[in-house]
Design a protein around this nucleic acid. Structure first.
Lengths: 156, 156
DNA sequence: CGATTATTTTTAACATGTTAAATATATAGC
DNA sequence: GCTATATATTTAACATGTTAAAAATAATCG
């Protein structure tokens, strides 16, 4: 288990910005990239992006949801979601409809072709996650998730 | 300090993918977004992006570096870096030159206008980071950085 | 030396991130 | 019912992420 020197340990430039590798933004980026590096090639083989996978995965879990709810759950900004929805609908993986009670809302639902992707990608995705979890340690993953959630909700 | 229920605690769908909020990729994304949300408005006021700030900050710390080294340190992919360098050079914040010994390499150096940005943004950036660190806890930040680094270097 | 291979950077093409503004529809108050 | 305001989605414009391939230069090896 690698242990980095903490900033305090190597008496570095207190005035300059932090050591790049010991700053939260880059550390979070590197960690995320390392994790996605395990998933992306598999997703690419199925010709979907990480974000597209999140969208159809949430539709499979949740059933019909509107765009706002999807944006929150998948953590995708509205303009990106608009494009992703268009692409997924063109490819027949999801279907889109207008909410009858509120004409502003767009309702999303997974299509049969989307369910096929879920059936194919789902098991591979879970296998990769399980391997990752086993390597890092299930307890540490939980601990890390807690700490990340605290960080994300600091200002709330 | 918010404490989330661990996946184990709420006996959820073992077959479906994870609860979205308890998956590492999204948790890392949310945490990173929360952190950057504190910096981005300030950077925007100075008309630089997060990535552009990383580049000039590293040049200020390191002096002259080539593009490959910059890509590693700033964690930016080569094609993005090409565009960022072009933009920063056009705006006079950095200067670019060809390596005399190796004609393939591009050497980067910060320009006076870039130093001005460093002088303006640096203190604000450090203040924001210090506030964040204080809110989250300095020790916990260190702990989190260690855990993130372990995750990023799992396969190494 | 010359051809092959490796390395560095750039270009291309498409997807997403980010902010601001536009559009469409609902809702609240008068 | 009409108007002002609020909300949901889309569009626009620009920046970056991602992969593959091209271009330029170096290094290797016969």
């Amino acid at each position: 288990m690698s242990r980095q020197k903490s900033s305090a340990e190597h008496g570095q430039d207190a005035l300059l910005p932090h050591n790049t590798r010991r700053s939260l933004p880059i550390a979070l980026l590197r960690a995320r990239e390392a994790v996605m590096g395990h998933f992306r090639p598999m997703l690419a083989q199925h010709e979907i992006t990480e974000q597209q996978w999140r969208v159809i995965r949430i539709l499979a879990e949740t059933g019909q949801v509107d765009a706002t709810e999807m944006a929150e759950k998948a953590f995708i900004l509205a303009p990106s979601l608009t494009r992703i929805i268009r692409s997924l609908e063109e490819r027949g993986l999801i279907s889109k409809s207008k909410d009858a009670e509120d004409g502003r809302r767009v309702l999303l639902e997974i299509a049969p072709a989307g369910m096929k992707v879920i059936a194919e990608v789902g098991p591979e995705s879970r296998a990769i996650y399980a391997t990752l979890e086993a390597k890092y340690g299930k307890e540490r993953v939980e601990k890390l998730l807690d700490m990340l959630d605290d960080l994300a909700t600091l200002g709330v």
